[in-house]
């Protein structure tokens, strides 16, 4: 079967004043269906940049990214927004829930862009919250939840639209060990049981071990094993 995500010769650079710094150079990568991939690498190596490109939040300078056959680098701004709504679930380091919405409403948010009825939306939200074991916290506001619980609500929000891929940028970066375990367990379950493709950026080797596959990004180059200059992972 063809890979879900095919990245070819991807180059991305940022301008800083007059000079431009190349962050990713001719990077190629295939990610298979139901794969749980962890991206590691030193700070500033371009992990978040790569993840943003895969998720369609940013545009590459050259090269292509195909997700299930769609070349997302050729989509317009609006087309990309629509594509994101249908195909990508996001999990952030700081959860990024909307503080004035309850857990239920936060999870319901992405469904507003679909044409599901109110009743169908309710079913989807309940299912997603059950999946992360927070059915009993539906009416709670984010500030009434612990960090781990908030991150689980965020996971529910990411999966409620049944997206093709899930992207997570340091999802356990702000959590204690136990909450991190829970969150990682969930992500692992999402890929192995439900069959979602998950791409996760992390600094934590323990977190990376949960993933089926680990790639190391350094100086814009991907490798299957850490290089000597990246000792914290050995």
């Amino acid at each position: 079967m063809a890979p879900v995500i095919e990245i070819k010769d991807l180059t991305k650079s940022y301008r800083r004043g007059s000079q431009s710094i190349v962050v990713l150079e001719n990077l190629s990568l295939d990610i298979e269906e139901s794969e749980f991939l962890a991206l590691m690498g030193p700070s500033g190596s371009g992990k978040s940049t790569l993840l943003n490109l895969i998720a369609g939040l940013d545009k590459a300078d050259s090269g292509s990214i195909r997700v299930r056959g769609t070349d997302i680098s050729s989509l317009s701004e609006n087309g990309l927004a629509k594509w994101r709504a249908e195909n990508v679930g996001f999990i952030f380091q700081f959860y990024n829930l909307i503080p004035v919405l309850t857990a239920f409403e936060n999870v319901e948010l992405p469904l507003i862009l679909t044409n599901l009825s109110r009743k169908e939306r309710k079913e989807h939200v309940t299912t997603a919250l059950r999946l992360v074991n927070l059915e009993d916290r539906m009416e709670h506001y984010p500030r009434q939840l612990s960090g781990g619980q908030q991150q689980r609500v965020a996971i529910a929000r990411a999966v409620v639209t049944d997206p093709t891929i899930l992207v997570a940028d340091e999802p356990t970066g702000d959590l204690d060990r136990r909450s991190a375990e829970e969150v990682l367990g969930l992500m692992e379950k999402l890929s192995s049981v439900i069959g979602k493709t998950v791409v996760m950026v992390t600094h934590d080797p323990r977190a990376a071990k949960k993933a089926g596959n680990i790639k190391y990004l350094e100086k814009g180059v991907l490798a299957n094993a850490p290089q000597a200059s990246f000792p914290e992972c050995i």
Partner: peptide, 10 residues
């Protein structure tokens, strides 16, 4: 928060 909205495709 508005960035989250945009991320979600709004």
């Amino acid at each position: 928060e508005y960035a989250v909205f945009k991320t979600l495709g709004f």
